Amino acid sequence: MDGQYSGSSAEIYERHFVPALFRQWGNIMVDRLGVGLGDRVLDVACGTGVLACAAATRVGDDGCVVGLDINPEMLAVARRKNTVIDWQQGPAEALPYENGSFDRVASQFGFMFFEDQAGALREMLRVLRPGGQLAVAVCDALDHSPGYAVLAELLHRLFGSAVADAFRAPFSCGDRELLLSRSAQAGITAAGCRRVAVTRHDGLVEFPSIKALVSTERACVWTLGGLLDDRQFERLTSKAEESLRPFVEADGHVRFNMPVLILSATRYGEASG
């Protein structure tokens, strides 16, 4: 494998996925949350810290940003990026914080991998103060992201449903009704939230080449990592050059839309026990 796709999964994520997909959403999410001076912000499943770092530029000296993730490799990369943010290891389903500890609580592209999604939402609500803002971002449905939809079909045709389904996993929560159902299971409305909504926002995927896109996915432990041998990878790359050609622009870069759903709510009333 190309040396630029070696290293830990977190390093590959930071080197390739962050600029291609995730960096754009940090500022969008902190805008959605209304992060301002003096705020205490919690980024749940922070990964390498895209959202947390964006929030840190807004809170000032009197504010505080905490990034929590269950993966120590992700946190190791995050700590190298920002030494002021409080990086902590822990699960989304059992947040190690007191009730009402934060003004803003967010999670960006981790929710679909939580073992207990309703439980994680319940915990995020618990640590949010009355009047605080909650926002959770997930990838929209796969069929709304044309380049990835084509790649999923190609994987299914070449290697079968198991490989294709592994690639589809990050898109598993791209459904408005599912997110609202998880919210109801978490008791968000009953626990004192208003303006509970799921909104769609368009984003852009951009890789420098088709090979870069396929190589990044092959190296990603959360999708195709470990599933394809060298021969299969070469076959996939060759076929992808044809299937993904409609998304290649004059500069050789691959670009296509990848919309995101954001579940948001405002807390009111007394902090839950």
Results as ranks from 00 to 15, higher is better:
68 L>N: 02
21 L>I: 14
10 A>G: 03
58 R>K: 15
10 A>M: 07
99 N>M: 02
75 L>R: 07
88 Q>H: 13
34 G>C: 02
133 Q>R: 15
93 E>D: 12
125 L>N: 13
103 D>S: 13
24 Q>N: 10
116 D>P: 10
61 D>A: 15
37 L>G: 12
128 L>Y: 12
25 W>S: 13
8 S>K: 01
102 F>P: 00
81 K>D: 11
65 V>A: 08
11 E>T: 11
97 Y>F: 15
110 G>P: 11
28 I>S: 12
117 Q>N: 13
96 P>N: 06
63 G>R: 05
95 L>C: 11
66 V>E: 01
34 G>W: 02
47 G>W: 10
50 V>C: 03
33 L>E: 00
91 P>F: 04
48 T>P: 06
55 A>H: 02
57 T>W: 07
16 H>N: 05
59 V>H: 01
12 I>T: 14
63 G>F: 01
21 L>G: 05
35 V>D: 03
20 A>Q: 06
63 G>D: 03
89 Q>H: 08
81 K>Q: 12
8 S>V: 10
133 Q>F: 10
121 L>H: 09
39 D>W: 08
28 I>L: 15
111 F>H: 07
73 E>A: 14
23 R>H: 14
98 E>S: 14
116 D>F: 10
80 R>L: 13
66 V>M: 08
76 A>V: 04
130 P>M: 05
80 R>D: 14
101 S>L: 02
117 Q>Y: 02
55 A>M: 04
10 A>D: 03
28 I>Y: 14
52 A>F: 05
125 L>E: 09
68 L>W: 00
131 G>E: 08
58 R>N: 05
67 G>V: 08
96 P>H: 03
130 P>D: 09
57 T>F: 04
52 A>R: 00
124 M>S: 02
130 P>N: 06
9 S>V: 13
71 N>L: 08
8 S>N: 03
45 A>T: 09
103 D>P: 00
135 A>Q: 06
80 R>H: 13
78 A>Y: 02
25 W>K: 03
91 P>I: 08
115 E>N: 13
106 A>Y: 05
123 E>L: 01
104 R>Q: 12
